[in-house]
Amino acid sequence: MGRTNPTYRGFLDGYEGEFDDYRRALRRRHQADFDRLFDGARAFADAAGYANHLDRDTLVLVSMLLAHEERLREQSDEIARLRAAVEAGDEAPDSVADERRTDGAQ
């Protein structure tokens, strides 16, 4: 037999579509932030699909929060790495030197 519930990814696409008017009303600089929230929710769609018995609105929010936590952890790890490099006496840690080359600054 077929599924009785739509897939989580299908639900998420429809749920995001419900916010089209809201997204359009946002200032342009905030629209990309809004899009990243739903990108974060999509990143954990596999896990949310397994939790089919839970409220799907809640799953979207938890997925967004989890993606946010992941970004915070990655930034915290990068800050710790940069601090350690500075304390060790490195003049320009690799990522900073790479950014300088990418930006064109020498």
Results as ranks from 00 to 15, higher is better:
residue 63 S to P: 13
residue 64 M to I: 15
residue 64 M to G: 10
residue 64 M to T: 14
residue 65 L to F: 08
residue 65 L to D: 02
residue 65 L to C: 10
residue 65 L to Y: 00
residue 66 L to R: 12
residue 67 A to S: 09
residue 67 A to W: 01
residue 67 A to N: 01
residue 67 A to F: 04
residue 68 H to V: 14
residue 68 H to T: 14
residue 69 E to S: 03
residue 69 E to C: 01
residue 70 E to K: 15
residue 70 E to L: 07
residue 71 R to S: 10
residue 71 R to G: 03
residue 72 L to P: 01
residue 72 L to N: 13
residue 73 R to M: 03
residue 73 R to S: 03
residue 74 E to R: 05
residue 74 E to T: 05
residue 74 E to S: 09
residue 74 E to N: 08
residue 74 E to I: 05
residue 75 Q to H: 01
residue 76 S to W: 02
residue 76 S to T: 00
residue 76 S to P: 01
residue 77 D to Y: 09
residue 77 D to I: 06
residue 77 D to T: 01
residue 78 E to Q: 04
residue 78 E to A: 10
residue 78 E to M: 06
residue 78 E to Y: 02
residue 78 E to K: 00
residue 79 I to G: 12
residue 79 I to R: 05
residue 79 I to W: 04
residue 79 I to S: 04
residue 80 A to Y: 09
residue 80 A to P: 02
residue 80 A to H: 03
residue 80 A to W: 08
residue 80 A to K: 10
residue 81 R to S: 03
residue 81 R to I: 00
residue 81 R to L: 07
residue 82 L to K: 04
residue 82 L to G: 03
residue 83 R to V: 02
residue 83 R to Y: 11
residue 83 R to D: 01
residue 84 A to E: 07
residue 84 A to P: 01
residue 84 A to K: 09
residue 84 A to Q: 11
residue 85 A to D: 09
residue 85 A to N: 02
residue 86 V to N: 10
residue 86 V to K: 07
residue 87 E to M: 07
residue 87 E to I: 00
residue 87 E to C: 08
residue 88 A to N: 06
residue 88 A to K: 11
residue 88 A to Q: 03
residue 88 A to G: 05
residue 88 A to R: 08
residue 88 A to P: 01
residue 90 D to A: 05
residue 90 D to V: 13
residue 90 D to Y: 06
residue 90 D to Q: 12
residue 91 E to V: 15
residue 91 E to N: 15
residue 92 A to M: 15
residue 93 P to L: 15
residue 93 P to G: 15
residue 95 S to Y: 02
residue 95 S to M: 06
residue 95 S to C: 11
residue 96 V to C: 12
residue 96 V to S: 12
residue 97 A to E: 07
residue 97 A to V: 07
residue 97 A to L: 00
residue 97 A to K: 05
residue 98 D to Q: 09
residue 98 D to P: 04
residue 98 D to R: 13
residue 99 E to H: 14
residue 99 E to F: 15
residue 99 E to S: 14
residue 99 E to W: 12
residue 100 R to Q: 10
residue 100 R to Y: 05
residue 100 R to I: 06
residue 101 R to N: 00
residue 101 R to Q: 02
residue 101 R to K: 12
residue 101 R to V: 08
residue 102 T to E: 10
